[in-house]
């Protein structure tokens, strides 16, 4: 049984810049007609360098900003936040985890309140049950119930990212947008968080849109890969197809630029250095 959770058709996002007294208004095309779809329980990785429009796309998918044109379907329902108000049901379906674990948690909110807030706003679950659910979620992401009453600054970057993931899962979303979730983390912590994401995906049949610039992480976690370059999707296909046979020259440049940490490459480099 396959079920398409997210489908995007020809998404476009333009920004209008300037238009002040002295400057002429310009239009910047941040996303230029991108289409893709993700099935339930799968991971789509969106790869690209800074300024390629991947974060803009993330904000559109997460229903934070509207698309200028194009259709966005979540669980088969068309969503258009530019023209109609977002219903709480749709709001619950998509959640996001940000890159910077230090900026994404409110410094004045206890962890318990961070986790309880989505339930408090969107449901009329009583306080006691909110608390129970938050406790259960803390355990699920590898933290302990005694963390419930602490403030974000008492946690390390990796733990904060676990909290951010827990908050995103409180509303039982069907789609989770992960905007560079491990880029700011140390290597060993990165491995733990990636494992956690994989465990949660198995358990809840979650669908991920994983935005990253790190190809080795993408190769590890993704089912499908989309490469973006200046607002366009230059390459889109299954992970194996993209990694084994990149079609677009930019994808090849990207692969060539990624530092390789295997013994053969080191040997080759040292040999070349000796020869020079």
């Amino acid at each position: 049984m396959t079920q398409t959770v997210l489908q995007a058709k020809n998404l476009v996002r333009d920004y209008h810049v300037g238009g002040g007294l002295l400057t002429k208004a310009r239009t910047v095309h941040a996303v230029k007609g991108v289409s893709f779809s993700v099935e339930k329980g799968k991971t789509l990785a969106i790869v690209g360098e800074s300024g390629c429009g991947k974060s803009t796309l993330a904000r559109i998918i997460t229903l934070i900003d509207p698309a200028t044109s194009g259709d966005l379907l979540i669980d088969g329902n068309k969503v258009d936040i530019a023209h109609s108000a977002l219903t709480p049901e749709m709001r619950r379906k998509v959640q996001i985890v940000f890159q910077n674990p230090y900026g994404s948690l409110n410094p004045r909110q206890k962890i318990g309140d961070v986790l309880g807030e989505p339930l408090k706003i969107n449901t009329d679950i009583p306080a006691a049950e909110r608390r129970d659910r938050a406790m259960a979620m803390l355990k699920k992401v590898g933290l302990a119930p005694e963390h419930y009453n602490r403030y974000p600054h008492m946690f390390s970057g990796g733990q904060r990212q676990r909290i951010a993931i827990a908050r995103a899962l409180m509303l039982n979303p069907s789609l989770l947008v992960l905007d560079e979730p491990v880029s700011a983390l140390d290597l060993s912590v990165q491995a733990q968080v990636l494992n956690l994401l994989a465990d949660l995906q198995d358990e809840f049949q979650l669908t991920y849109v994983f935005i990253s610039h790190d190809l080795s992480v993408v190769r590890y976690i993704a089912d499908d890969v989309m490469v973006m370059y200046f607002g366009e999707a230059v390459e889109y296909g299954s992970r194996d197809a993209v990694f084994s046979d990149p079609k677009h020259s930019y994808t090849r440049t990207l692969f060539a630029a990624t530092p390789r940490a295997d013994v053969e490459s080191i040997k080759a480099r040292l040999a070349k250095k000796k020869a020079a």
Binding site: I64, P107, R167
Partner: peptide, 22 residues
């Protein structure tokens, strides 16, 4: 424009809550 504010927005917080509480 900090991410925790956007997070609260994604969690469904309205204008008043974002201003006063977040």
């Amino acid at each position: 424009n900090r991410e925790y504010v956007i997070s609260a927005k994604v969690a469904g917080a309205g204008h008043l809550r974002l201003m006063a509480v977040t």
